[in-house]
């Protein structure tokens, strides 16, 4: 799997993502700078990592979404290259229009940094094929703006097309408004684009990839990609 991670000023989880990719595929990713105007040839996967790109100025992800490299990322996504946006990367994908909706301030107005439970809603993607349907996994979140919002029509369409990847739930897998850790509409923690080659998610699977980190529930996501993109 030939992977690249885009580094924006203020990214801070790019090494974590790189480590998870190397662990899953045996090949270290390339690191790209936000001002780059081209991508390495033959990329299978592009990751937009977590962090605080451009200091979260204006809106989270808004400035990064307009950076030069994102024109190339959009074009690559259009060609079917896999794109994974985690946390700030999800915010960037949403601001760039690569996935629908927007990430708003958490309903609690607090920065939330703790492990949460997710239900894997859709396993028919190259990101989630390694999970069992409705599997409950534990992974961390660390964000102040992860409150997913889209209008009802968009939410209905996402659900109807099976494009909700993960939902916030409790340890038993129960999905209720009370288990939507940040207030996200319909507990949505991750969504696909219409072609299912772009996934945006707020939680950090790259930070749950071995026992030393508290668990390895995030590993299957990277293993799924490595298997789908040999």
């Amino acid at each position: 799997m030939k992977a690249a991670i885009v580094v924006f000023p203020g990214s801070n989880r790019e090494r974590d993502a790189g480590r998870a990719i190397t662990q899953a595929s045996g090949t270290a990713p390339a690191y790209l700078w936000h001002q780059d105007t081209s991508l390495p040839a033959g990329l299978d996967l592009i990751v937009l990592p977590g962090g605080f790109s451009y200091g979260d100025y204006l809106r989270c992800g808004a400035m990064a979404a307009q950076s030069p490299i994102m024109r190339e990322v959009k074009a690559a996504a259009g060609r079917g290259v896999a794109v994974l946006g985690i946390c700030n990367g999800f915010q960037i994908l949403a601001e760039a229009g690569l996935v629908p909706g927007v990430l708003m301030r958490n309903a609690s107005l607090r920065f939330i940094c703790r492990n949460v439970h997710l239900k894997v809603v859709a396993t028919n993607s190259m990101f989630t094929a390694g999970y069992a349907p409705d599997q409950v996994i534990a992974v961390p979140v660390a964000h102040a703006e992860g409150n997913y919002f889209a209008d009802d029509h968009t939410l209905d369409r996402l659900e109807g097309e099976g494009r909700v990847a993960f939902r916030y739930c409790d340890a038993a897998g129960v999905v209720t408004p009370a288990t939507s850790v940040n207030g996200s509409a319909r507990n949505i923690a991750g969504v696909f684009n219409d072609r299912r080659n772009v996934l945006g998610m707020m939680p950090h699977p790259e930070n749950m990839t071995e026992a030393m980190l508290g668990g390895s529930d995030g590993s299957a996501l990277f293993a799924s990609l490595a298997k789908a993109l040999p």
């Binding site: 808004a62 400035m63 307009q66 601001e95 927007v102 919002f149 889209a150």
Partner: peptide, 9 residues
């Protein structure tokens, strides 16, 4: 339209 507002919200 392009940057200053996110017209979704």
């Amino acid at each position: 339209e392009k940057l200053l507002a996110n017209t979704v919200i």
